[in-house]
């Protein structure tokens, strides 16, 4: 049976090991085999100590985010054969960037979720709203908000963001995208406060429109567009304030 070489970045800071690459020859059991399938095969047949995260295996949960051949991707959503360029590899698999490694491919997403919590990611209903409040599916507002609500919080955008790598205090693409989804939603009443949070020094202004987040998002969310949308909202808000001050 044909095999593809899987090269995995391994190591554990707790056991004070230095990171190293380990190669495994994985048989092509199925044409449509994913990188995650290959990792599972290695864990079951070669090395049970290989550590990685996964849950749903169908691209819904956002747990198996890794860096494959230098690019962020969901291991379950990346075909092994395609990643090997229809050859025999090697396919290089690394943990996500900018997050501390716990072991092998498992990272600590703490800082990613801290930033998400920082923008208060839950909807704050205004007074007097009677449930259920719906945005009509064909309304303009719904069209604007919809793609930005697709986020599965896999952290690929955070790993791909060059600024997050330089400044761990930067809110990051996912948190800003969530803030945009809420600020653009008329059912949310905390828009002004949320704009204040994202307009802080380590918020919007650290985004330099590098577009890496948008490129790697497994849900195709136009993240940079969301961040630019927030910037425009703040510009309008600030300039309004300035002219009010002048009066």
């Amino acid at each position: 049976m044909d095999t593809i070489t899987l090269s995995v970045r391994r190591g554990s800071p707790e056991q004070n090991t230095t990171a190293y690459w380990q190669e495994f020859d994985v048989p092509i059991v199925e044409e449509t085999m994913s990188v995650l399938d290959a990792l599972i095969w290695v864990q079951r047949n070669v090395d049970p100590s290989l550590a990685f995260r996964r849950a749903c295996r169908v691209g819904m949960c956002g747990t198996c985010g890794t860096v494959i051949n230098g690019r962020e991707g969901l291991a379950c959503g990346t075909l092994l054969g395609a990643a090997a360029g229809n050859g025999s590899g090697p396919v290089r698999v690394q943990p996500l960037r900018h997050l501390p490694v716990i072991r092998d491919l498992v990272t600590d997403p703490g800082v990613f979720f801290d930033h998400l919590r920082g923008v208060d990611p839950s909807l704050t209903p205004g007074p007097g709203l009677q449930e259920p409040v719906v945005l009509s599916p064909d309304s303009r507002e719904r069209q604007t908000v919809n793609p930005h609500r697709e986020c599965i919080y896999c952290g690929l955008c955070y790993s791909a963001c060059s600024v997050a790598g330089l400044d761990s205090g930067f809110l990051g693409p996912a948190a800003l995208n969530r803030a945009f989804a809420l600020v653009s939603d008329s059912r949310d009443a905390a828009g002004k406060q949320r704009l204040q949070i994202v307009a802080s020094e380590q918020g919007l202004w650290r985004c330099h429109t590098i577009f890496e987040c948008t490129a790697v998002c497994p849900k195709g969310i136009p993240i940079t567009r969301a961040i630019q949308g927030l910037k425009r909202k703040v510009i309008v808000d600030r300039l309004k304030n300035l002219f009010r001050l002048g009066r």
């Binding site: 208060d120 704050t124 905390a190 406060q193 204040q196 307009a199 802080s200 020094e201 600030r238």
Partner: peptide, 13 residues
């Protein structure tokens, strides 16, 4: 709750 908090941290604009 976010509504009652005073966030005055616009600094980078």
């Amino acid at each position: 709750p976010l509504m009652s908090r005073q966030e005055k941290i616009i600094t980078g604009f």
